[in-house]
Structure formats: C-alpha cells, structure tokens
Design a protein around this nucleic acid. Sequence first.
DNA 1: TTGCTCCTCACGTCACGTGAGGTGGC
DNA 2: TTGCTCCTCACGTCACGTGAGGTGGC
Lengths: 269, 269
Amino acid sequence: LFSIGELSRITGLSVKALRLYHDKGLLVPARIDPSSSYRYYDAEAAEEGRLIRKLRGMEFSLEDIKEILGARDHEDELVDYLEAHKDSICAKLSHYHAIVRSLETVIAYEKEARMIADNATFEVEEKQVENILVAALRYQGSYADCGKAFARIGRRFGRYTCGKPMNLYYDAEYKENDADIESCIPVRKGTDADGIVVRELPGGRCVSLIHKGTYDELGRSYEKIVAYVNEHGLQVQTPSREIYLKGPGMLLRGNPKNYLTELQLLVEE
Amino acid sequence: LFSIGELSRITGLSVKALRLYHDKGLLVPARIDPSSSYRYYDAEAAEEGRLIRKLRGMEFSLEDIKEILGARDHEDELVDYLEAHKDSICAKLSHYHAIVRSLETVIAYEKEARMIADNATFEVEEKQVENILVAALRYQGSYADCGKAFARIGRRFGRYTCGKPMNLYYDAEYKENDADIESCIPVRKGTDADGIVVRELPGGRCVSLIHKGTYDELGRSYEKIVAYVNEHGLQVQTPSREIYLKGPGMLLRGNPKNYLTELQLLVEE
DNA sequence: TTGCTCCTCACGTCACGTGAGGTGGC
DNA sequence: TTGCTCCTCACGTCACGTGAGGTGGC
C-alpha cells in the first residue's frame, strides 16, 4: 500500500489533487487509518491515478473523468465522450488560431511603422511612385468621414488589401467641409461593389514628405512641401495624396504623436 | 451619457462585467448619481468598452488589459505585451494540437476495433498473409512480460509503427513460464537498436481465428483452431502468432469482454 | 399597482494551491 | 527536541453569473 505522498510521486499528481479526488470519489484509498486518518492506496489506485493524470492532461473536467471511469465498460459511450471532447478542443484550436492571426496582424503593423519611422528623414524628397490598384470611394465631406469610408471598403475588400489606406484630395485648396475626397485602399484584385470602385491610380514623379504627429499638425508639413514645390518651380497635379502609414490601429489607438502620414504631390515630369 | 444597460448593448459587455470593470478601475463611469448610485458613462467609455471587449476576446486577463490601457502611449511596451501574449497563445495551440492528435489516435483505434468486430465471423478461416516488416524482441518469459516488451519497442519505433502488435510463440506446446516469445510491432522502416531486431516475417497460407474476450479464455479458441487443423490434415508451422487487434489501449483499458485477438497458424502449402 | 432598470451584497464556478495549526512516529 | 509526513479546515484564484432583496420613476 502507498501513502498519499508515495502515490503522488508515482502518479505525478499533487497531494492536494489526490485529496480532492478522494473527496469527489474519483480515486478512493483502499484503506484509511482510523486513528491517524492517513490514506493508503493500492496498486490499482496507482493505475487509476495515472489514467486520471492523462485525462486531466487532455483537459477533461473531473466530472467528465468520473463519467469516463464509470463508463469504463461501455466502449461506444467512451468513444462518444472522446469525440465530443475532441470537437470542443478543435473549437478552441480555431479560436486560438484566430487570436494568433489578429495578434500577428497588429504586431506586424506596429513593427512596420517602427521600420518606416527609423528609415524616414522627415524631409521633403522626390521619388517615383508606381501605378497601384485601389478600391476607392469618392464623396463630398470632411476628413472626419474617411474613417467610415475605410471601414466600408475594408468590409468589402478586407481579404485583398495590400497596402496602407490613403485619401486623395481633389480640391485645389483646403476645405474643412464639403471637400471632394476619395478614400482608397490598395488591393491585389477585386471588382466594383457597393459603390466602391476598383481602379488603378497612375504613378509618376512625386514630391513626398513624411509627417510625424497628429493630424491637426499636418498644416505645417503641407507648408514645407508646398515651399519646396514652389522653390523648385514644379507643376503640381490634382489630386494630392495623404497616405496613413501609421494611424489609430484597428485594435490599439497608439500615441498620436507617433502617427505617420506621407504627403504626396504628383508633379509633371 | 449612457446608463449601464445602454452601454451593455453598445459594447456587447454584460452589465455584470461592466460593474466588475468599474470596481477594478478598468472602465469608470463619467458620473455616478449620488442618490440612486446609477452609473452614467460617456462616449469615450463606449470606445474603451469596445476595446476591452476585443482584448477580452483575445483572452487577455483584466490585469493585462489594465496594463495595456495604462501603457496606451508607449507603443514598444504594447508590442511587447502583444508578443508575449501571442507566445502564450501559441503554446496553448500546440498543447491543444497534441491533445487532438492523441484523441484522434484513440478514437481511430476504437473505431477500427468496432469495424473488425462487425466484419468478423469468429469462425476458423483460411487465408493468405503477406510478408510484414516488424520490430521484434525475443525473450524467454511469460505472456505477462509482453506488455513491457511492446512498450520498449514502442518507445524506439513509435513513429514507424503501422499495425497491431503481435506475439510469436516458438514452443510447440503451451508453457506458462519460460516460454520462447517474440513480441513484434509492424513498422514501415527502421534499423536494429537496443536489442530490438527489424526483420521481415514471412507470409503464406494460414489458418486464422478471431477470438473475442479475455486472454484467459484464449484456450477455447486454440482448441477450435487445432481441431480444424487436424480435421483438415494440415501441417502447422512454428511459431504461431497472436495478433492483438484490440486489447487494453494506451489510454482506456476498455472492456476485456470486447478484446479481439487473432490466432494465426501458418501451414504448409 | 405593475413593469422596468438599476443598485448592493453574498455566494457559486473549477481544480486545485497556499497557508495555518495540529498530530504521530523516528 | 527536530524533522518529516500526514491530517483538516479555511481562504484565495479568475472573471464573471446567479440570485436575493430593495429602490425609483413612469
């Protein structure tokens, strides 16, 4: 016969657990010393204990285990238990998969933003931009409306997106309200749907400046980029672009001081 | 301002949860009516609530969430939290994967046994058996020793096994002790190791009987098969084979009355 | 008065872990 | 006496859910 401590070492179950299993009638000692109340277990209990440990390792509840031990002899029932349990574990698996995927998305977004911030000069630069395919929604409104627009595009084209969201501004000057805005998200493919147009934005020579900070302060960066354009006698095309490299994420809002926005003015070659 | 019920509907969090979050300082009402103690929340709280719900959906603990909300502005910290959490979820994923795999193994074993039982006639039959590659351990001992032998082979060749374990008996008559036994498990491939020999068992014409029940009762089935052999004037080869189609599984012992054991006597063509 | 929303305790869940305080034999 | 193993409460964990019993305004 084994004392509780010995059984614990044999089975790998804690003494506390063994006492609990006794209380619950899962694993009952062969003998209990009447004077000391010491529990003594037999070899069969050791086997049972090992089995219980395996089942606990598979996250069966104590209640389930009791049923399984009780239904020892009826194998169809056992298989049903196992299958039901397998299904519930599979459900957890896909749940955790989904969590990992969204965590990875968020982490990748943050790391990319860090990369961009580390490599940016925050000075006006000239560069070539490629043609890009986007899903686009054009409307009259204020900057504040673009959140809803991006959400709407995201819902339709979420699985095809392949770049940062951007706004195109068609007005020559800044307008608080009733601005002519086109909100775009780059996509790999897609067809027009729900008022959203899939089209190719033409690339070309462009003047670019990455702005770091809140959107309120964008004006200063616009000043800088316009000054550059004038200084170099460049001919600016409409629309201008604002690319939201890092903004309030889908999950975390982040610190607005770290928001990154690229201003792009396409110019005549 | 929203009442707690309204906020609950907006955020999808239960009223009980919202009260708890208030107690824990996670989501504090904008105003508390002094006379009625009613909680009133503002629009910002609604945003917070939605965020908390997302984070809870990702199985962050309330404590984690408090830290995350507190570290809102320090993005490196946030990313660290997310990555740590991702790692812990990935650990769970692989744990659950392992559980599903072992459940599937057990379920498949039970279902196969059911299939065999359903298709078996439990009468003596003649058939051809193929050559099979096995990992084999030969020893002098009693039937009771074969459990250890199979365990030892399983440890070495577990990943290559592709069939039911079997014993070969080299003695002409039954011996309780000091029997000459070879315990084998079919394998896809493998090389000799640890005293275990990988070799090909020759096939051929054989007389077979599937025995249902405990091992104690095997004698009766042996009687039956020997009677058949004699009746048909067949020449039996040594060793005889016992194939354990269904026995005490690795997890569940099952009902010994449902154990299935195939007796095979190879005979001269 | 009835129905609705809100309130505050207090207790339950699940499988133990963590003491506290005590016993019994070497 | 000290150290070890065992015992029995009682309480904590985590994020709520489930009442019970009561309030306040329509």
